[in-house]
Structures are given as structure tokens and as C-alpha cells.
Computed example of a mutant assay.
Amino acid sequence: MAHTENTIQNCKNKHLSPFERGQIAALHKAGHSNRDIARRLGRVHQTITNELERGTTTQLKTGRTPYTAYFAETGQAVYERNRLNCGAKSKLLTAAEFIDFACEKITDQGWSPDAVVGFANKQKEWKDKLMVSTKTLYNYIDLDFLHVRNIDLPMKTRQNTKTKRVRKNRRILGMSIAERPSEIEDRTEFGHWEIDTVEGKKSDDNALLTLVERKTRNYYAV
């Protein structure tokens, strides 16, 4: 029996898209079989089986019984991680000579990945050999693909990830009380006032403004 809706040939050797993973999650939750889902998506049923195994995880919620289910987001995340690892490991093999050279310079001589790549680019011996970029080297280190670790990169461990925030329109509040002249502190000179405000408990209360002359102790409240 021929299936007129079958489009397996069009999707052969193509990776599942996030949208298709969403369809798989919805159809699987609705109780459709792997073969039925494959027919609807134009895929071979083994692709659906592999995807369900890849994206199935156990969920733990406080006060509830753990349950296992397929999640499209999990399947996509696992797929992307596998693709990254696959490509990285293959590059590690083909550029193994440069990787060993980079690790030696970083661990034994304290070079940074950027210094290694910059140096190699200027050397004739590396002109026809496969190398990786500075960013790729850092990625390999972050992913623990090399025996070099972030702790081996002094400049990276000293970097401050928090940027200093400079307030351009910072209010100038005047001289600090601690810096006032001694004659003000000793109350020997008339004309120096202290000012303060007192706010009520409610946000719509009026504020009370108080002024005190330091020598005479004359007090005003508005």
C-alpha cells in the first residue's frame, strides 16, 4: 500500500529541526506510535526512536512523584552538544601537532592561546600545517578537551568579569561634615546652620524641614 503523504525521500540525511522536535513531543504525548510520527513527519521510524531516547529525561518536582518524558528542548540541547563534540574531536585529531605545540607553550612557557596562534602564523613551518584559531583553543580548554586548564592561563584567571560602572551624572552632595572647620565644630562662630528632613511613615506624608544654628541653638521647623 502506497502512502501519498510519505515524504521520507525528501528528508533523508537531514537533521531534525527544533520545530520537528516540537511536533514529536506533541504527537508522542498524544499517544502516537513512533511509526505514525515518522510517517507524519516524513521520516524513518528509527530517527524518531533515536530522538525520543535522546530527549527523554526524568523530571523531579518537590512533593511530586518523579516522571519520565520526552522534551524537545532536551533533545535539541543534546543534539547541539553532540555536534559540537563531534566536530571538535575530529579537529583535535587532524590538528593534533599544533594542539600539542600549543599545550606545551601554554604549560611550560606561560604563553596565552592568542600568543601561540600569533607566533605560529608568522612561522614558515606552520604555513602548510593545519592549525586552529585562538577562539577554538579557548573553547577546547573550556570544554576540557585538552590537558591545559583555565587555571593554567594566568591572564584569564586575573580578568575581572564585572565591568566598572561609572555614573556620568552623579550628584555632588558637597563637603562632608567630617571636613568642616574647627570653629564650626567648637560652636564659637555664629551663622553656621545644620539642616535635616524628617519623613512620615506614609509615602504621601509631608516632610518636616528642620534648621538649627549651631552657636545659639536657635531652632526652626517648617
Rank of each mutant, 00 (worst) to 15 (best):
L27N: 02
F19W: 09
R43D: 01
R43N: 04
V44Q: 12
H32E: 04
L52C: 05
H45R: 07
N34L: 02
I24R: 10
N50V: 05
E51Q: 09
P18M: 12
N50F: 03
N13T: 12
L41W: 10
F19H: 08
E53D: 14
I37T: 10
A25N: 06
H28D: 06
I37P: 11
T49K: 02
L41A: 09
A38G: 07
D36I: 02
A26R: 14
Q23K: 15
G31D: 00
H15W: 10
H32L: 11
R39P: 05
R40D: 08
D36P: 05
F19G: 00
H28R: 15
A25R: 10
E20C: 07
L52D: 08
H32D: 01
F19K: 09
I48G: 06
R43M: 04
K14I: 08
H32Q: 07
S17E: 08
R43H: 02
E51V: 13
P18N: 13
L27W: 07
H28F: 03
T49R: 12
R54D: 09
P18L: 09
K14H: 12
P18H: 09
R40G: 10
T56F: 14
T56E: 10
G42E: 03
S33T: 15
E53W: 07
R21G: 03
N50K: 14
R39K: 09
G55Y: 15
P18V: 10
H45C: 01
K29L: 13
H15E: 11
E20T: 09
I48K: 03
K29F: 15
R35H: 06
I48D: 02
R35N: 04
R43G: 07
I48R: 01
R54A: 08
T47G: 02
E51H: 08
T56N: 09
